[in-house]
């Protein structure tokens, strides 16, 4: 079904089931991916994606297409839910924090590409939450800095700073793993 996200959401709010299905198929992978990259766990990412999308479905009848982009809104809600989850985990204790590298197949059993994916995901999990969020939105979800500023309720300059610091930190984290990542002949 054609139409931008706002068209589909408005149609859904007016009772169009086909629009609801199309919007769900379009947004579920994006919201899930964002959540997974933030929390690093499939079950939690699913819970967060479901929560965020249900909030969107519930406001569909009242959606004002001039208020905000649907994607900006859903990224923002998802990001806040992820932050809430991570903060609760901090209170629970670091023993329950996910260890992405340990929950996945060993490096030796994976192909190169998969190793890199896991290394990146693992490195992302080591970033402070705000830096992780900014890097994920900028470099993995490919939002513009002004969009990220809206999602994170920051200035564009603050977003640029977060992204730059996040990338620096990622480089530091990944540098010792350059051999496993296939960069042995390079200076990472």
């Amino acid at each position: 079904m054609q139409g931008d996200d706002a068209d589909l959401l408005v149609a859904m709010g007016q009772g169009d089931v086909r629009a609801a299905r199309a919007l769900s198929d379009r947004l579920t992978p994006r919201v899930y991916a964002q959540a997974f990259r933030m929390v690093g766990r499939q079950d939690v990412a699913e819970d967060i994606a479901q929560d965020a999308l249900m909030r969107l479905w519930n406001i569909a009848p009242d959606w004002d297409r001039h208020r905000a982009k649907v994607t900006t809104w859903i990224y923002r809600v998802t990001a806040n839910l992820c932050i809430d989850y991570l903060r609760k985990q901090r209170f629970v204790g670091s023993d329950e924090l996910p260890d992405v590298a340990d929950t996945r197949p060993s490096v030796a059993d994976q192909m190169h590409q998969s190793v890199r994916h896991d290394a990146l995901q693992s490195a992302l999990m080591d970033l402070p939450e705000r830096q992780r969020q900014a890097v994920v939105l900028r470099h993995l979800e490919e939002l513009s800095n002004p969009e990220i500023a809206q999602v994170m309720d920051l200035t564009v300059e603050a977003v640029e700073s977060l992204v730059a610091r996040g990338k620096r930190k990622l480089t530091e984290i990944l540098s010792p793993k350059k051999a496993a990542l296939g960069y042995a002949d390079q200076k990472v």
């Binding site: 991916a33 997974f36 990412a45 994606a49 479905w57 009848p61």
Partner: peptide
Amino acid sequence: PLPSDAFTDHMRQMAVAATP
């Protein structure tokens, strides 16, 4: 990272159920 087919189906059903 992709959601499972089961989760995608589940979300589709939730969207339909939430449609007024």
